[in-house]
């Protein structure tokens, strides 16, 4: 998604003269085109994320539209107080862009993973957290991020939309990707590209509704999602994020407020249970988020 984002932001920056692209000294092999296109509006702040975020608040207060880019954990956690106090509480239009959300940086290890980013940012006032589903979803997601007038966060990952499912529906905070052909037995909802891991086999079983959620907090609960969970009575949530403060808890609370009775099955990032590290696929498997584990989970739930 990083390349897709850099292409989008290059074009966006050409038409939005107020965009100031700040990076915390990251973006090798991905942002050169942005730097060339934006010229002085591309600013490498050095490895100083705290300064970068407060600096962005200062720029935003003067009417500019700054964006702070780094690897997700560095963009989110290091300057969290600056984001909370200088950006969110002032409701300034600063956008944080984190590359490699979840276990995206794989073998780089825990320092480079972001498993709690939605939790800590989505609870801040005025914040919108946006997560594209796949590479071709980035442009729509980024447009939505900048349409949101307040502060926001874009979590970039990596994923290819399976062309066998037809065209990707246009970006929405909640989208139905797949509708059961028979009376549905299971509702699946996920955020970010890890949801793509759950898709193989689902069109064939014919009894599963699938929804992609791409924005937290949820702006509104989709009617089709409410109807689906009401009918199936069971919701499988898939997210490459800690259990606390992620999509599972958001959906559970939102559906409970609607009075929907259902059982929640939650597949989420479990951290590092064995204290061992590996690729993104390795960590997904540890968390039951790899395609095989998810297929087994679905098979069990619709049996």
């Amino acid at each position: 998604m990083r390349k897709d984002f850099s292409q989008w932001i290059e074009q966006f920056g050409r038409r939005e003269s107020r965009l100031i692209f700040l990076t915390g000294d990251l973006g090798f092999g991905a942002l050169e085109n942005v730097s060339a296109a934006l010229g002085p509006r591309f600013v490498n702040c050095g490895v100083s994320e705290q300064n970068m975020v407060s600096l962005a608040a200062g720029l935003a207060r003067q009417g500019l539209r700054p964006l702070c880019y780094s690897i997700a954990p560095f963009a989110v956690f290091r300057p969290y107080e600056q984001t909370r106090l200088d950006v969110a509480l002032h409701n300034l239009p600063v956008k944080i862009v984190g590359n490699g959300g979840g276990y995206g940086y794989g073998i780089m290890g825990a320092s480079h993973h972001a498993l709690e980013d939605f939790a800590v940012l989505s609870c801040l006032p005025n914040f919108a957290c946006v997560a594209p589903l796949c590479n071709s979803d980035v442009a729509g997601a980024a447009e939505a991020l900048f349409r949101h007038e307040g502060p926001g966060y874009l979590r970039l990952g990596l994923g290819l939309w399976p062309e066998s499912l037809g065209a990707l529906p246009a970006f929405q905070p909640v989208r139905q990707l797949l509708a059961a052909r028979q009376p549905p037995k299971l509702t699946v909802a996920g955020i970010g590209p890890v949801l793509l891991n759950a898709l193989p086999g689902l069109p064939e079983n014919g009894v599963t509704d699938v929804f992609a959620v791409s924005q937290l907090p949820l702006p509104a609960l989709d009617d089709a999602l409410i109807r689906s969970v009401t009918a199936t009575g069971q919701l499988l949530v898939v997210e490459e994020h800690a259990a606390r403060g992620g999509l599972g808890e958001y959906l559970a609370a939102a559906l409970a407020r609607e009075g929907v009775s259902f059982k929640l099955h939650h597949r989420h990032a479990v951290g590092y249970p064995a204290g061992r590290y590996g690729s993104q696929s390795y960590h997904q498997k540890q968390s039951g988020l790899d395609p095989a584990s998810l297929q087994a989970t679905v098979t069990g739930l619709i049996a």
Binding site: I20, R41, S54, L55, G58, L59
Partner: peptide
């Protein structure tokens, strides 16, 4: 926080 906020406020003049 103050010096970073001030830096951003001043740096905006460039644009």
């Amino acid at each position: 926080h103050g010096l970073s906020l001030a830096c951003g406020t001043v740096f905006s003049q460039k644009f």
